[in-house]
Computed example of a mutant assay.
Amino acid sequence: MRRSALNQVLVFAAFSAAWTALALYITGPAYRLGTPAVGVLALVGAARMFATPVAGRRTDRQGLDAVNLVCAVGAVVAGALLLTGHLGGAAGLVGLGAGMLLLDVATQSGQVANQARILALCPEARARLNTAYMTCAFLGGSAGSWLGVRAYAAFGWNGVCGLVMLLAGLALLRRALR
Rank of each mutant, 00 (worst) to 15 (best):
A171S: 14
T131M: 10
L33A: 12
G156M: 03
V164P: 04
G88Q: 07
A47F: 10
L129M: 05
R178L: 12
L64N: 11
G144C: 06
L6Q: 15
G28E: 07
A153W: 09
G148L: 01
C71H: 05
G79L: 00
L147P: 08
L163Y: 07
A30E: 13
L101I: 08
V105H: 02
N114C: 11
V40G: 10
G74M: 04
T52W: 10
A127F: 01
V73F: 09
A14W: 02
R58W: 15
A42K: 11
G39W: 11
R57I: 12
S109V: 06
R175C: 09
V112F: 05
L101G: 12
A51N: 09
A75H: 02
G74N: 03
G162P: 02
N158E: 14
Q111I: 01
L119W: 04
W146Q: 06
Q8G: 05
P53S: 04
V70F: 07
R2Q: 13
R48W: 13
G63Y: 10
A55E: 07
T35M: 15
S4A: 15
A17P: 08
R58Y: 13
A75Y: 02
P29W: 01
T27H: 05
G34K: 13
Q115Y: 12
A127C: 02
Y133E: 00
G45P: 09
Q111M: 09
P53T: 10
T107E: 00
L6A: 15
G99N: 05
M49N: 12
V149N: 07
Y133G: 00
G85E: 08
L119Y: 09
A171C: 10
R126S: 08
V149E: 09
G92S: 05
V77R: 01
G156E: 03
F15I: 00
G39Q: 12
P36L: 06
A125D: 11
A5G: 14
D60C: 14
L33S: 02
A78C: 07
G39R: 14
D60K: 11
R117T: 02
G148Q: 02
A137P: 01
V44C: 12
G92K: 01
N7G: 15
A168R: 05
A51C: 14
L83P: 00
G74Q: 06
I26D: 09
R174L: 15
G85N: 03
R150Y: 04
R117M: 05
L96V: 09
M165I: 04
A125M: 10
V77D: 00
R174C: 13
R128Y: 06
G56I: 10
S142A: 15
A80C: 06
L121I: 11
T131G: 15
L96K: 06
Y133Q: 00
V67R: 06
V70D: 13
S16G: 06
V105F: 07
A168W: 03
E124H: 14
A132M: 11
R117N: 09
G140T: 00
L69N: 11
H86D: 13
L83A: 05
L163C: 05
G144F: 00
M134P: 08
A90G: 04
V54P: 07
V77S: 00
L43R: 10
S142Q: 04
A98T: 06
W19Q: 11
G92T: 02
L166E: 01
A132P: 06
M1Q: 13
V9R: 08
A30I: 07
A66E: 09
A5D: 14
C122Q: 13
A14N: 02
